[in-house]
C-alpha cells in the first residue's frame, strides 16, 4: 500500500539489513513497504550511497520514507544519499535516531496504521527513551 510511510534499513552488513527487514515483514506484515541495503560497493562491511538511493527509490511513496541506520558511516552516507536525491523525491525522507532493529519494527508498526512520517519517526525514537 502506498498510503503507509515506507521503511528503509541501512546497515554496514547486508545480513543485518536483510534480517531486520525480515523481522519487520514477519512481525508487522506486508502492508508496510520495506527496503534494505548493507555492505560497501565491493561487498565488504560498509554502506553504499548508490544502494541507499536505490532502496529509497524502491519504496518511496507520497507519505515518505523513514530510514533506520546502524553505526556512524551508515548515518553519514544516508544523509548524503538523501541530499543528493532531494530534487527527484516524491515524498520526504527522514533519518530516525533509533536502534536499527527495534526502531525498524516500531516504525513499521506505527506506519501500518497509516500514521504520518513525523509520528513514525517519534515512535521509532521513543524506543530508547
Amino acid at each position: 500500500m502506498t498510503d503507509c510511510v515506507a521503511i528503509v534499513i541501512v546497515s554496514h552488513s547486508p545480513e543485518v539489513a536483510k534480517g531486520a527487514a525480515d523481522m519487520v515483514r514477519e512481525m508487522v506484515g506486508e502492508e508496510v513497504r520495506v527496503a534494505y541495503c548493507g555492505g560497501n560497493s565491493e561487498g565488504g562491511l560498509g554502506t553504499d550511497v548508490g544502494a541507499i538511493q536505490a532502496a529509497i527509490r524502491k519504496v518511496m511513496g507520497p507519505k515518505g520514507v523513514a530510514v533506520l541506520v546502524d553505526l556512524g558511516g551508515a548515518e553519514t552516507n544516508s544523509e548524503m544519499a538523501i541530499e543528493l536525491m532531494a530534487d527527484e523525491l516524491l515524498g520526504e525522507v527522514v533519518l530516525c535516531d533509533a536502534p536499527i532493529v527495534e526502531g525498524a519494527v516500531m516504525a513499521a508498526t506505527e506506519a501500518s496504521g497509516g500514521a504520518s512520517l513525523d509520528a513514525v519517526r517519534s515512535t521509532a525514537e521513543e524506543f530508547l527513551s
Binding site: 519494527v105 508498526t109 496504521g113
Partner: peptide, 14 residues
C-alpha cells in the same frame, strides 16, 4: 512478547 505486542498494537490502531 514482541510479536504479540505488535499484533495487539496494529489491531488497536485499526
Amino acid at each position: 512478547h514482541a510479536r504479540p505486542a505488535v499484533k495487539l498494537t496494529k489491531l488497536a490502531k485499526s
